[in-house]
Simulated assay, not measured.
Amino acid sequence: MSLDPTIASRLKRNDAGLFAAVAQERGTGDVLMVAWMDDKALAKTLETRQATYYSRSRQQYWVKGETSGHTQYVHEVRLDCDGDTVLLVVDQVGAACHTGTHTCFDSDVLLSAE
């Protein structure tokens, strides 16, 4: 499986060939997590609708929920205006964060509305 060349030409990757992927919950709009992708991970995500990322620490691909059961079904994928980040709009089953919480952004609020 390979990424459509039209899409690939629009992506801006870091020195490791990666770009950021933001997962957002379709029903609530919650930002669930940020991970990394490369062309192969994005191609697999687009083909299967299963969120597939690249682990920098393990240097391998992982499908969200493959071992935990906490899956992400991908409804929509958007490329940002700079081409360096993709947004995945997903249905999340179970926790999105590796700590077991629904979102990776629910513990440390640095600033909130007054």
Rank of each mutant, 00 (worst) to 15 (best):
T28N: 11
Y61K: 03
L87A: 00
V77W: 09
G83N: 01
H102P: 08
T52W: 04
E47C: 07
L3H: 11
Y53D: 08
L3G: 02
G69M: 12
L110F: 15
S57Y: 06
Y53I: 01
H75R: 02
T28C: 11
D39Y: 10
T45R: 07
V34C: 14
E66A: 12
G100E: 05
V86L: 06
D82F: 02
M1V: 13
T101I: 10
V34K: 02
V93R: 03
P5M: 04
A95T: 06
D38A: 06
M1D: 09
L79P: 00
G83P: 06
A23I: 09
V34Q: 11
A43H: 14
R10P: 03
K44T: 15
H102S: 01
R78W: 13
L110C: 06
T101W: 03
A20L: 15
Q24D: 10
M33Y: 03
V93E: 05
S107N: 01
W36Y: 13
R78N: 01
G27V: 07
R13C: 12
G94I: 01
Q92Y: 12
E76V: 02
P5F: 00
L46I: 09
R26W: 13
D15G: 09
E76R: 03
W62P: 00
A95F: 02
F19L: 12
K44H: 11
A41H: 00
I7V: 15
L32I: 09
S68A: 02
